[in-house]
Design a binder for these strands. Structure first.
Lengths: 188, 188, 188, 188
DNA sequence: AATGAATGAGAATTCATTCAT
DNA sequence: AATGAATGAATTCTCATTCAT
């Protein structure tokens, strides 16, 4: 990807996190990226396209981060813990500003079929985890979407509160939260 | 509250849900509410104030809905189930358009101390539930913010997927999800 | 018609005549008309609509001017001469700046059926002249469009040259031109 | 003339006819001509110069077309008829797109003295026709500009209506129009 | 209290022109 | 000579806000 295009995407993400969804103008993006306003339109059709592409860009980054240090031959609970913490770290370490401000969900998305297949592939390690857990009888027999909402999304939710300063999570609480997330999806 | 003020708030919520955060102008609000543009400024200082007040307005509505049919002398699990379903129903029955579109979080908020106290009071029944659960040794000894993130927020998360059409939750899955949310916070 | 709307149309006509079709911006129109840029959009949907309405406005003016001092009971040649001179005077007296610069034809037109009927009605006196002339056997038996192209449009053509300074027409030449236009359409 | 220069002029004419005066950008011209945007500036100083040169280019083409198959030893009326039809054919056969759309007149012109002399020379056959006609007593004793406005310009005028679809001219009407144009300028 | 015409700054986008390659 | 990425001023149009009525 061209250097300028990367800088524009990066600038957009930074500004969106800082100023929220409204209040980010193309001029601001241009200035932050250090390019002329017109230059943005060489790489993106219009503002909508810029936001769409930013969505895809971030999603790829997120999928990559979540899968970090996870291999399919690790024990289930170890894999789960690693992914849970990957999400937590990503959201709390400010390297994904849009995620931890809850602004990512509001980016306009392309709802195409290819897009969905792509997303599925990107989060393959999560699917694998849930499928294996269910096959082994360890996890509840629920669809992956539900398992995810019960166990991984609380990580984002907590991280957001942590970042916003609404509530500070300490190390013990963090471990307990991971355990509780695990409790939510395993058979008892 | 004056009739016109109510109509303005109602119109704003409807339009926000429909057109997203950008694309709602004061002219549009005025038209939808059936008042003149200038009239809005009799009830709200500026656009920001309108959105702030809308935030408070919706939050009050939400707090009210969540607590519906919940009294402090009901058994813990019954109370939990009722609140979980109150959230689910509110989000899926389209009577809180901003919530189920995930746009509520993006409303500008006042981060004052009074605001926080007020919110605490509004969600008193939730706090009471968690406190009693912990006191009785049934719940894990975690802060309410964490318990909420583990058990109630998945309800919103699922409802959103359900509404968006990303994933349809059937009745059995719903019951299982409630049970799993409960599993997340109780001691094992 | 509102005073502001009139001023905007007037300003647009003046500027178009002066700067040609390109080089007239909405800002310029606003400044010339003494209104704010946004005000134009209260009266006209967009720039296209402004130009369309200007077209209609001018056409009405032209139709009115052409028919001045013409009544259907005047002798044919007298009517013809009056209309020919009405055109000439309008174009040379600078009160129809767009006409005499040949910019009028380039205004975007609405090609609707109603528009055509309206135009027909506006130029009724011209039609009547040609029809009577043909019925009496004085004029050649040609369609009005052709008769007009042969006899009245040369008036505009000459006026344009006169205004542009390409060629100055004196009074004798003017009378001769009217006579020649007449010769073009009568039987010999 | 260089091949690229020709292609640029050709592309400009095509685009102007299609998109009108606004709506033709240098980028579009470059693309249509199959050259890079910067290349245009090797052959033309700026956009204005491009349009000026296009004007001259077209005028030369027109002058050439009008004089086709006309030699000074042909009988007057035959010469007149040939030129009248040359104009008609050129305008109706789409090989002079700017003429028959009435956009040619709006091209910016250089109003220099040399330009005028050049134009005079280019239309020498027209001048000769009129001068001979007047010398022989056949034509009215009017300046060439007037004779032209009375007899040849109606051809363009009619052709434009024909092309625009405002009015379709059939073969009989065409002959009659030529005859009427002739009637306009001969002595009676 | 209520209106809605008017404002003008600011938004997205285009485009003539330049210049390093 | 030719390229085409880059520029940034200018364009059309919107919109929060004001104010005379």
């Amino acid at each position: 990807m061209s250097d300028k295009k990367k800088r524009i995407l990066q600038a957009t993400e930074t500004l969106l996190a800082e100023h929220g969804f409204h209040g980010v103008s193309m001029q601001m993006v241009a200035k932050e990226a250090g390019v002329a306003a017109g230059t943005i339109y060489r790489y993106f059709e219009d503002k909508d396209d810029l936001l769409h592409q930013l969505h895809d860009h971030i999603l790829a980054h997120v999928a990559n981060k979540i899968s970090q240090n996870v291999s399919d031959d690790m024990p289930l609970q170890h894999r789960f813990r690693t992914m849970w913490l990957n999400i937590w770290n990503m959201a709390t370490q400010e390297d994904a500003p849009l995620i931890n401000r809850g602004q990512f969900e509001n980016l306009p998305r392309r709802e195409s079929h290819e897009q969905k297949l792509l997303e599925k592939k990107m989060f393959a390690k999560v699917s694998t985890l849930f499928e294996e857990g269910k096959a082994s009888g360890l996890f509840k027999n629920l669809d992956n979407e539900i398992l995810s909402a019960l166990s991984l999304e609380p990580s984002i939710c907590l991280a957001r509160k942590h970042i916003n300063g609404v509530y500070k999570v300490n190390d013990d609480a963090l471990e307990a939260a991971i355990q509780a997330s695990w409790d939510a999806i395993i058979q008892h």
